[in-house]
């Protein structure tokens, strides 16, 4: 089993200061995010919520290094993300970020194993060690018996597990979920959330973008965005404990940007 990020739990993995993202519109500028300050420490379990149009997805794209901010500073895993080339950002995404999407985004023609190995293709890594790591990741999500299946032979929950295995395989600093249960029924949603709880318990830093209260309830910290600004950032004392999560007081150390 690969080790989760080796940072101490009180070290910041993500720190945003004065992040602004604006798009030019016809005759005015649209601000998707305005002066967002946010620090997330290692092994935090954070939900980013808010109504549609609040800037959740924009924040998620910036956190995932998919989109640069218009201004402000973003440090991910101690590296300054701003002012870097697309090639550098690609490498950063590969090494520090594990993405989980609402629509799974698996390659339809590739087997489960190939899908999980895909992020490793972009590293200098031999085929055999790629396979070994992918099998480990699939074992962690309980899909060791579906290695050679194609995505369309799997249920929605199983597909999302494949996507989670793909996010885990690179052992990233953060796992970033964009409405990860949005396409799943309530029973499967519970299964997947249990899996997130479990990964958090193993030491991973998890950030979920969601508009579902149920999902936010699982997380230990809830950041609420409205109109591109952080409206509230609170610890979730009622967080539904997963049976494997040992009681910890780490969430009290959250620094509010």
């Amino acid at each position: 089993m690969s080790e989760p990020t080796n940072k101490a739990s009180n070290e910041p993995v993500i720190s945003l200061s004065n992040i602004t993202k604006h798009y030019p519109m016809a005759d005015e500028t649209f601000y998707a995010l305005q002066n967002v300050n946010l620090t997330i420490n290692a092994n935090e379990y954070v939900a980013i919520t808010g109504p549609s149009g609040s800037g959740k997805s924009t924040l998620m794209n910036i956190l995932g290094c998919l989109d640069p901010a218009s201004s402000g500073e973003y440090r991910l895993d101690d590296q300054n993300v701003a002012s870097h080339s697309e090639a550098y950002l690609a490498t950063l995404r590969n090494q520090a970020v594990g993405f989980i999407f609402q629509s799974f985004n698996l390659l339809p023609r590739a087997s489960v194993l190939t899908n999980v190995m895909q992020p490793l293709v972009y590293r200098l890594m031999s085929g055999s060690s790629r396979k070994k790591m992918a099998l480990e990741a699939l074992d962690r999500v309980g899909l060791s018996d579906k290695v050679n299946s194609l995505p369309n032979q799997l249920s929605g929950g199983q597909r999302q597990r494949v996507a989670i295995a793909r996010a885990l395989v690179t052992n990233p600093a953060i796992i970033l979920g964009d409405e990860p249960t949005g396409n799943l029924d309530s029973k499967t949603t519970l299964e997947i959330m249990a899996l997130f709880d479990q990964l958090h318990a193993q030491g991973h830093t998890i950030i979920l973008v969601t508009h579902e209260q149920e999902i936010a309830d699982h997380c230990h910290r809830v950041v609420r965005l409205v109109d591109g600004q952080i409206e509230s950032d609170r610890l979730n004392q009622r967080a539904k404990p997963s049976q494997e999560t040992p009681p910890q007081d780490q969430t009290k150390q959250v620094m509010h940007g």
Partner: peptide
């Protein structure tokens, strides 16, 4: 897009 999200360089 997926490949890029997963770290494929240009």
């Amino acid at each position: 897009g997926i490949a890029k999200a997963l770290g494929a360089t240009p």
